[in-house]
Design a protein around this nucleic acid. Structure first.
Lengths: 117, 117
DNA sequence: GTACATGCAAACCGTTTGCAGCCTA
DNA sequence: TAGGCTGCAAACGGTTTGCATGTAC
């Protein structure tokens, strides 16, 4: 049920939100089981974690591929950013700083088009 | 004393670390006062917050200028990255996605030169 | 005497853990 | 009968809050 919630719900779902979905179908479920299942899926490489700045970890099915996030600090909308928009940065960091960046699911904060004014 | 700790200590200091320094000089001090002072300094624009991935907020004097952080996930070292290394990204996000990124103190995770092997 | 800063303790919230019971093999 | 998963409750760690006292102006 955790896996189904990950695939069926919003793209970046928190443990709490997964828990709610699971509990709708099986009211005795417990949030610690959700966390333990997510931990397992993480070890298996099936989900990745993202921290989108609201103090809770969010989860994302790994098979949906990498992408980055533009998080609007005003309205909270999360825009997906294709991975290649940042590949140039990855090169610069590697060649000029010797740093091998792990740019999976980078979160960049700022203001979206709507909220810019 | 909070301000002095911010300027005297490590570049990105946590509330807990500030608290320790303050308490060395004034043992009756309380951590809630540290948090309240940091909140005040934040409103005044004198400090900025950074989240460097260890689950606690770190603080940085605003006057020391912007820069970004390369955080090694293996050895934990924090390398400073000049702001202009990323200005290109800022332009791309703005022109291609209409997103006004707030790239103060971005944290990028990965592996440093030492730990890459 | 009024406003504001402080210490203290308790609450908070997301996450983790110890333990006992249960199911399955 | 042994292993591992679950529910439950309690702990955890960083941060915030309510309240009563203190201090300065």
């Amino acid at each position: 049920m955790v896996v189904e919630a990950l695939h069926g719900g919003a793209d970046h779902i928190s443990a709490e939100e997964i828990y709610e979905q699971v509990r709708d179908r099986y009211p005795y479920a417990n949030i610690s089981t959700v966390y333990r299942t997510l931990e397992l899926l993480k070890e298996l490489g099936l989900v990745t974690e993202v921290e989108l700045g609201d103090g809770r970890v969010r989860y994302h099915p790994a098979e949906r591929g990498r992408h980055h996030h533009l998080v609007c600090q005003k309205c909270g909308i999360i825009l997906d950013l294709p991975e290649n928009a940042i590949s140039n940065l990855e090169d610069v960091l590697f060649h000029e700083y010797g740093f091998q960046a792990d740019l999976r699911h980078l979160a960049i904060f700022g203001l979206c088009t709507e909220c810019r004014n």
